[in-house]
Design a protein around this nucleic acid. Structure first.
Lengths: 339, 339
DNA sequence: TTCCATTAAGTTACCGGTAACGTATTGCTC
DNA sequence: GAGCAATACGTTACCGGTAACTTAATGGAA
């Protein structure tokens, strides 16, 4: 249509250099703002860059000089969650400020999916990767070691990370909520979660939760983990299931706020009073809960901060600057009036 | 720590070839499954690939042979929306099946942000890009033309696309809902939306909506568009604002379901009956609405299908296979009991 | 004035693949 | 058995940058 299209990607550095009457190397130096050129030369080069609409070829740059790739791979459980979306948003925003490009992937809590994503991504020689899986396959660990590439594990706090870990203390979140619910006089306590593949961090929160109950000599009377994505729908039906099996239940701790909201609506649809007939607690501090007539008892988490810290830590590791191995992103139990 | 790390990225094709006793080119052919080698040679090469843990360098491949990059850039308004998350998920999933890598970006409905993202991404010589902005800057359009790169515009149906458009007919969604609400006897109808920067597709839906009312000789009595991200919170407060200014309002059309749910809770908190005192309609068919005691009147949309179609269309364009210029993703008005 | 450090360049080689082309061997047809 | 196509390779050059090294000019100190 537009006639013979010029070579894809337009002009090259050599053309810019020639037009400016300098060598490729000098032009390269100007564009990377390295030293070794006069201000007149810089102006001349930049003028030609502008005139020719030169777009540098990062592929060539990353390829040519080993170790200089500015690609970063990020693999999250799923892209449809507002919490992971927020983390991803924050990571992408921070990384792009530092000049890195984000390549994404979703693993749905499947360690195998994470590994195959990793294999594909490593072919791009990324400067680093950010993982969120709870467990990694032996293959994943081996590859990462072999490539000796910076890795930031996010979401869960990992006290013995592969490299760097930035996350929430899910165990403590669960423990704290367990104590809180006990403190409000509940004793027939259930847990309702959902996992699409292998268990994710919800399981860690459950462990903390269970520990809190055990420390008080209480047992969790029911645990229902649906094979599904966590969400409103799963919360609704998980609640139905668990209550139909055990009518004594007086309180439920949910995988997250979406499930808690789903459960809340189930309970209300059955005419139960909250928290008198049944108490409900979530996790995540999601926006949806903020508009409910009830103030949902939950744990609010700092996803933006987590994403920013993770991205910054990764950049620091890439630049071989000192970084803390383990960074905690804060969480806070928000007592509402549903427990 | 781990001693002198070997060259980043491990072994090269040359090493594999040497170990297998063939030339680089033959090894390359085997790995790309091209023709021109015997089955014994293939086995020998693949054995060495396995033994050496060879990871191909896609950077080199993409760089070396012009036109063969398998990178695709995707820029969505934001990553925290379940709808865009679902589209992105579907795009990423489909693209990776075809061997492409997704590089993301978020523009928050700012055409400038989209342009600067595009400039950055083009430096990677992507095989194609997927855009979702309603408007593009002149610069964006010019760059795309100059690079003659396949582009798929998603989300809105664009009858005169830059290249290919895959989207929903937002205008019709609005029009249809307008007629539906009128048909239920409402006449003091308001609209509540939110836009973080420039107007997005919500504005297109509003235009369709307004047209439906106008065709029936009715005027939209109030339009409140918050400068904020669409969400539960914005829906709640937007409703408060619009109702405080006009007590006559008997029905509200919202930017999307999250805002509608926010509005629903505001109305219920004020003791209003739905739909008798006030009718509520959303857009998107989001999961959150499925667990409400009320069945929200909304337009359900096929985000997965949209993402898949967009990815497939882009791949087809890259491969220079014939593609429809304009592909419609389906939407369906779901009458609930909130209107 | 001589010497040396500094600045502003240029030159060369190379990153790891792939395209294009060349060549030896095999097997088949006429 | 000559001619030819198909198969299975090998060789060479190149993509567009950057690292590492070299060179020329300048200026200040001894």
């Amino acid at each position: 249509m537009t006639g013979t299209s010029p070579r894809r990607g337009g002009s090259t550095l050599a053309e810019v250099a020639k037009a400016a009457g300098v060598s490729k190397m000098t032009a390269s130096r100007v564009l990377r703002d390295a030293s070794g050129f006069s201000s007149e030369t810089r102006d001349r080069v930049l003028r030609e860059v502008e005139r020719l609409g030169y777009v540098p070829n990062r592929l060539a740059a990353a390829f040519g000089s080993d170790q200089t790739s500015t690609l970063v791979g990020v693999c999250v459980p799923r892209l449809t969650s507002s919490l992971f979306g927020s983390v991803l948003d924050s990571i992408d925003h921070t990384l792009s400020k530092f000049g890195y490009q984000t390549m994404i992937g979703a693993h749905e809590q499947s360690p195998q999916a994470e590994e195959s994503w990793l294999r594909a991504i490593l072919a791009w020689r990324p400067a680093g990767v950010i993982l969120s899986g709870r467990k990694h396959t032996p293959g994943t660990v081996e590859i990462l070691r072999a490539q000796s590439i910076p890795v930031v594990e996010i979401w869960n706090l990992n006290t013995s990370p592969l490299d760097v870990s930035v996350g929430f203390n899910h165990f403590d979140c669960g423990y704290e909520m367990g104590r809180f619910m006990l403190g409000r006089g509940h004793s027939n306590i259930a847990y309702v979660g959902a996992e699409s593949n292998a268990a994710g961090m919800g399981e860690v929160r459950y462990q903390g939760f269970e520990n809190a109950l055990a420390d008080a000599g209480v047992e969790c009377v029911a645990k229902e983990v649906l094979v599904d994505r966590p969400g409103f729908y799963a919360g609704f039906y998980g609640t139905e299931t668990v209550l139909s099996r055990n009518a004594e239940i007086d309180s439920i701790y949910y995988h997250d706020d979406t499930m808690a909201v789903g459960g809340l609506f189930y309970c209300k649809s059955k005419g139960m009073r909250i928290p008198d007939d049944i108490a409900i607690a979530g996790w995540g501090g999601m926006e949806v809960a903020s508009v409910l007539p009830e103030r949902l008892t939950t744990t609010s988490v700092t996803t933006q901060a987590l994403g920013k810290s993770a991205a910054e830590a990764l950049v620091a590791r890439i630049r071989e600057e000192p970084v803390e191995d383990v960074l905690v992103a804060s969480t806070r139990l928000v007592p509402g009036n549903t427990v």
